[in-house]
Computed example of a mutant assay.
Amino acid sequence: MTPRDDSESAGPRRSRWSDLDRPPLNAAALRRALVREGSLWREVDVVQRTGSTNSDLVARAGGGGAEGLEEGVVLVAEEQTAARGRLDRKWVAPARSGLFFSVLLRPGDAVPVERWGWLPLLTGVAVAAGLARAGGVDTALKWPNDVLVTVGGEERKAGGILAEAAGTAGASGGGGVVVGVGINVSLRADELPVPTAGSLALAGAVSTDRDPLLRAMLRGLEDWYGRWRAAGGDAGACGLQEAYAAGCATLGRVVRAELPGDRALVGEAVAVDGDGRLVLATEAGVQEPVGAGDIVHLRA
């Protein structure tokens, strides 16, 4: 879709597409770097604007004659107008101020479906490593899907990960998972959607060039996905469980887990188990695994 340039009807008024500090992604260069013989990535598409890359890729991959869409498709948007986080939360950011992309993965018969829940955590490990390598910024992971940075000594959310089913696992199309990633890269303080948000720029990143940041994250994702798939989804055997725990800011904290059914559980986060669940040690002296819910960090 070609966006309307606001400057066409508003004279010299600055368009959201004319920020020289936010150059467009180089789609051709990204394809040359990522789509190669033996690579996981088969297709890299960059669109100027869409509602949600996750919704678009789920629609392409989840049926209606699209069963043949192979894994390894990457869809990137310069701007999203209806982006979603967990629990249908809105994700709003100016054009070209971040990295908003989704990938299609099909673990197939190599990984039991009950282990597919590791995919958003695996993506978090790859994203954190890629941002550290290409952006020179320290990040941490909040279970299960937030990417945190430190701004002015405070923990801020700079990104999120959302995994959605695409098709039915075990069906003729192979089923699959679309994993979406949103990272605030160059957002300035006056552009933050909420005071608790952050960006790589505000966290002191040495580089906010989105092309190498995206390449680093996707290469890391390819590497970890290959290891995890080769191990049959065993997060312990491939080192994923240990890597996630090492970068998880939730472990060692007292947290409140807001669970389905308006239930809440408070305890110390002591581990991430083999199924990717967060294990809480409660005041009652029991350890309870949490597989889904909203986690609030209370104190260290």
Results as ranks from 00 to 15, higher is better:
M217P: 06
D273A: 10
V35L: 07
A292N: 07
S172R: 14
S52Y: 01
T168Q: 14
E222R: 07
W17Q: 08
L57N: 04
K157Q: 07
G11Y: 14
G72P: 00
E67Y: 09
L162R: 11
G98K: 07
A197V: 11
D109F: 06
N184F: 09
R36K: 13
G267S: 13
A77V: 03
R60D: 10
A243R: 10
R60N: 01
A66G: 15
R277W: 12
G85P: 03
V279K: 06
V76N: 02
E70P: 14
L218E: 14
A132N: 04
W17M: 07
A257S: 05
A83K: 05
G173A: 11
T196C: 00
G63P: 01
G274W: 00
S55T: 15
V47W: 11
A216G: 06
A110I: 00
T168Y: 04
T168D: 11
T208V: 15
G173K: 12
R115T: 08
A158V: 13
V296S: 11
G232I: 12
G85A: 03
P112S: 09
L280P: 05
A284L: 14
E242A: 15
G11H: 13
R133A: 15
R89Y: 06
R22V: 06
S199E: 14
L34S: 10
T208S: 06
F100P: 09
G62W: 01
A61H: 03
L104H: 02
A216V: 02
Q48L: 10
V185Y: 03
W228Y: 12
G159P: 04
G153V: 09
R22K: 10
L75I: 05
V103G: 01
A230Q: 13
A169N: 00
E222T: 08
R60Y: 01
G204A: 01
A27R: 13
A230T: 12
A61V: 12
T208K: 05
V111A: 03
A27N: 06
V47F: 00
S97N: 10
R219C: 12
A132T: 08
P112R: 07
R16N: 07
V151P: 08
D21M: 08
L240P: 04
G65M: 09
W228G: 02
V177M: 14
D275N: 10
R96H: 10
L131N: 07
R227S: 08
P24N: 09
D275L: 15
R16T: 10
V92K: 12
V44I: 13
L20D: 14
V111D: 03
L104K: 02
K157L: 00
A300V: 12
Y244S: 03
A245M: 14
L278E: 02
L298S: 02
R256V: 13
A166P: 01
D209W: 05
R13F: 13
T196D: 14
S7T: 15
R210C: 07
A257Q: 02
N54H: 04
T53K: 12
L218I: 13
W91A: 09
R106D: 03
A61L: 11
P112A: 11
R31L: 00
L214P: 02
R13D: 13
L259C: 03
R42C: 10
P195T: 04
L20Y: 00
N184G: 11
E222L: 11
A77D: 04
P212F: 14
A243Y: 03
D109G: 08
A10I: 00
S39R: 15
E79G: 00
F101S: 04
